[in-house]
């Protein structure tokens, strides 16, 4: 059974190495500052053996963005969730983890395309599912769709 590590434990371990990276924790999640995400991820990969990046997602809470990293360790069969917050609405950006896990490559491009969060350090930051020059980022809450049956939707 994959054990979900306690967020508080992992936060404490990260906090010992990187003193001001962690901003909080939950039962399953560790919250870090967005500038420190690469160092925290490197710590998790090297010291706690989190060698498998399961997925990167982004959520648009209307005043800020959250980027969520689900990580897993094959050797020890653990999992943990790393989460960071990005307050800039106009040109949000977060350091890229592609140098640690190659699996982040396409997923970060997709987050850039649909949410508009760009990842610093990514070798090929361009749109992936929509075409070049498309105006807007569809998954944001301020992108309005005309749904059938009338009405607009965010």
């Amino acid at each position: 059974m994959t054990k979900t590590l306690s967020g508080a434990d992992v936060a404490r371990q990260i906090g010992e190495q990187l003193p001001d990276a962690v901003t909080g924790s939950d039962e399953t999640t560790v919250f870090v500052r967005s500038e420190a995400i690469l160092d925290a991820a490197r710590f998790l990969k090297e010291y706690l053996d989190f060698d498998y990046l399961v997925s990167i997602s982004a959520i648009d809470f209307v005043d800020h963005f959250d980027v969520v990293y689900h990580l897993c360790s094959f050797k020890n069969n653990y999992s943990v969730v790393l989460r960071t917050r990005c307050d800039d609405r106009d040109s949000p950006s977060v350091p890229s983890v592609v140098s640690l896990w190659q699996g982040a490559d396409l997923q970060e491009r997709e987050v850039y395309d649909l949410m508009g969060i760009s990842f610093d350090g990514h070798p090929n930051m361009k749109r992936i599912v929509l075409w070049e020059g498309y105006q807007g980022h569809p998954l944001r809450k301020d992108f309005i769709l005309d749904v059938p049956g009338g009405g607009k939707a965010t």
Partner: peptide, 24 residues
């Protein structure tokens, strides 16, 4: 493993990881 590959492609490379057994 580094490229987050899963399924038969991962198992074809010799990694014995299947969610039905590791996290039933």
């Amino acid at each position: 493993i580094n490229a987050s590959v899963s399924g038969p492609v991962l198992r074809g490379s010799g990694v014995k990881w299947d969610i039905r057994k590791s996290n039933p």
